[in-house]
Nucleic acid binder design. Structure first.
Lengths: 218, 218
DNA sequence: GGGGGGCTACCCCCAAAGAGGTAGGTGTTT
DNA sequence: AAACACCTACCTCTTTGGGGGTAGCCCCCC
């Protein structure tokens, strides 16, 4: 917690692509003030190393096999890791960006950005600004606009059934109750809920219900 | 569903007290327009009879051994029973009243009310008014006032710990996450949640979370 | 000194939820 | 005709949640 301000920044790199790790490491080596203290090839290893080294900055790949970047990010935050965490990815999908920011990412940088720009964004993130690749900011804006225009929205990609079931969740109902209400099997309710959770990137019905209520489905 | 308006009202009595059932039956027998089609001595039996007879009115005792009146009421509503349901009870506890109304009761009448008044309230309930013993209306008003004065309330009887955990629920967190957040065992979290659910008469964490969010803990 | 409430931790047990799969029926679109 | 999305149902499996209990510890109040 008592972090000397002008010291070198201790960096952890999590990416399952060895070549890209090396690239990042060299990029940072050329710069003053960065020290890569560890590299991990996967989410779980990254988490372990984060707890071990307590770095100031974590560069995290979003698209990893096994435990993916988003899951890793969430776990890191859940564990109370307070390092700056910047996602570095090839995905320019809006939902990935949104999910990352919601999960507490301090930056979201595309891999094909210019190295100079990447460095600049990293520095920006270290100073408290959320670093997002310029070409993505419009996506974010759009998403946020949609986010706030509540009002009977068909939640993005949700099907009609998933939507009505989300409303049931927002009413606090159990699977059994929803099944009775909609006159379908409880197992079917579970299928819809599973698909909905996946689409909206929630981890449990409670998260979904809370979000739904907070966003006007209550 | 196609209910002749001026027919006799078909009544189901659910009370584990034989003498009181008889009293009610006789009270209704003296009146025009009521026909007691069944009596049940317990919640489950009452539910079965309700599904069998589909009565227009159910007089339900709140304080029963086994499945209590509130639980019975909830189940009846969950099953889609659309009869008017009036709770008849000795309890003038505010929380019982609130819980009953929230669970969909059409009336809440104290057993020691005057028979004439009881009849009048029943008739009122059949016409769509929520029949509540006069001496309880002030309780209801008070409760509603407290209900709306959100703003960092210590939810009634909740302890400090239960309150912070309720807030965690309103954030959609799992027991495991809450445990990490508060640095206690997951089992302990479960204890707090169990006690909280009981005090606030919720049936699941989802109900509690939804309520908490809707009432300003989001 | 003796309650009592609150917080903690643990036990057992069972129900609910969630993740994964296969699969049939229905529509619509290509 | 083939592909696709959707809703439905059912399978197995593991994790989570929830109800009941006992018990120790602390602190405040009588």
């Amino acid at each position: 917690m008592t972090q000397p301000v002008s010291e070198t920044l201790r960096v952890l790199i999590i990416d399952d692509h060895p070549l890209f790790r090396r690239g990042l490491r060299q990029l940072l080596a050329l710069e003053e003030g960065f020290e890569v203290v560890a590299e991990a090839a996967g989410g779980q290893e990254g988490i372990d190393l984060a707890r071990l080294h307590d770095p100031d900055l974590i560069l995290l790949d979003l698209n990893m096999k096994g435990m993916d970047g988003l899951e890793t990010l969430r776990t890191l935050r859940d564990l109370g890791i307070e390092a700056r965490i910047i996602l570095i990815t090839v995905s320019n999908a809006p939902e990935d960006l949104i999910a990352a920011i919601r999960a507490g990412a301090d930056g979201y940088i595309l891999k094909d950005n210019d190295p100079t720009d990447i460095l600049q964004m990293i520095r920006g993130a270290m100073e408290g600004r959320t670093a997002i690749s310029p070409e993505l900011t419009s996506l974010l804006a759009t998403a946020l606009r949609e986010e706030s225009r509540s009002e009977e929205r068909q939640h993005a990609s949700l099907t009609e059934r998933e939507n009505t079931i989300l409303k049931c969740l927002a009413a606090g109902m159990s699977n059994k109750l929803i099944a009775r209400e909609l006159d379908i099997m409880e197992g079917t309710v579970k299928v819809h809920i599973r698909n909905m959770l996946k689409k909206l990137k929630f981890r449990s019905r409670v998260e979904a219900a809370v979000w739904a209520v907070a966003n006007g489905l209550g």
